[in-house]
């Protein structure tokens, strides 16, 4: 069942320059979907349109069967949360505790219940020890974890990550990616991740490749990354394991598709033994 449906979406930041040129796709409930594309391909615009932060020129967006409009935006926002790129610009309050409470206050949650909710979700992202810390005393990865806790506290069924790891150091990136995988694996939430990270995309259920404001290709990771030429033509990289397979094939050695270095090593070792 599709939880997000985007139909023939058009959007322009400036007149006569279309950022989105008739984008259509659907995302299954409980799936982990990544949107890949180079800068300016329209990835983040899609995220903002789905979250109702921008208004489309034409086209329709359905969230859980409900059409996104001015009248339904408040209801729809309760169903989805969005984690943005810059960890600093989404830390609203002066402490971790208050920041997680911000969304709860907006949804009129009983203040007496807030402490328990804050503790639960801060614990889930490993920030329980830092509840009284100010944003200036937190790393980028920690701030991003607080943003995730703030969103989880509002119980959305869909979480959008808009290049949420791109401004983080390698440790921060790994921390956030692990939380994303856990949210999908354990919580069965619908995850939509807008990313440049090919390796992250490889772990998702579906990939939507954007190019010049249009959907270039949709499909499972194998289907997407097997089109190495097409991806390179639109300026995208391909995963390391696919590059190795491609290089070996040029030498006449055929190996199956693999997603991780470990799988690749195993395949190569079996080939060597054979």
């Amino acid at each position: 069942m599709a939880i997000i449906e985007v139909k023939d979406l058009h959007f322009s930041y400036e007149e006569n320059i279309e950022a989105l040129k008739g984008v259509s796709f659907s995302i299954e409930k409980g799936s982990y979907t990544t949107i890949l594309g180079h800068n300016g391909s329209g990835k983040s615009t899609i995220a903002k349109l789905i979250a109702g932060l921008l208004e489309a020129k034409s086209g329709e967006i359905y969230i859980d069967g409900q059409k996104l409009s001015i009248d339904t935006i408040a209801d729809i926002r309760k169903k989805l949360g969005i984690v943005f790129q810059n960890p600093d610009n989404q830390f609203i309050a002066s402490s971790v505790r208050e920041d997680i409470a911000f969304g709860l206050e907006n949804y009129c949650v009983d203040p007496l219940k807030m402490d328990d909710i804050i503790d639960k979700y801060a614990g889930l992202v490993g920030m329980k020890e830092n509840l009284d810390k100010e944003p200036s005393n937190l790393s980028g990865g920690q701030k991003q974890r607080v943003a995730i806790a703030g969103i989880l506290a509002m119980h959305p069924s869909i979480i959008i990550f808009d290049e949420a790891t791109s401004m983080l150091d390698p440790t921060g990136k790994e921390e956030i990616k692990k939380i994303i995988y856990d949210l999908h694996g354990d919580d069965k939430r619908t995850i939509l991740s807008i990313t440049h990270d090919i390796e992250e995309a490889l772990k998702s259920d579906y990939i939507i490749v954007m190019n010049e404001g249009k959907v270039y290709k949709c499909g499972k990771p194998h289907e997407i990354f097997s089109d190495t030429k097409g991806l390179r033509d639109i300026g995208l990289d391909i995963p390391f394991t696919y590059k190795v397979k491609e290089a070996l094939e040029k030498e006449g050695i055929k190996i199956p598709y693999t997603d991780t270095i470990e799988e690749l090593a195993e395949v190569l070792w079996s080939n060597l033994k054979a």
């Binding site: 943005f84 208050e98 009129c108 807030m114 703030g150």
Partner: peptide, 26 residues
């Protein structure tokens, strides 16, 4: 730019300046 992104983050978390809210800190 920061103000724009902050406004987006606040709006995405259900903030409406004239909307009804509860207070965590009393």
């Amino acid at each position: 730019q920061r103000a724009d992104e902050l406004a987006n983050a606040m709006e995405a978390r259900g903030y409406a300046p004239d909307g009804k809210r509860t207070r965590y800190r009393r």
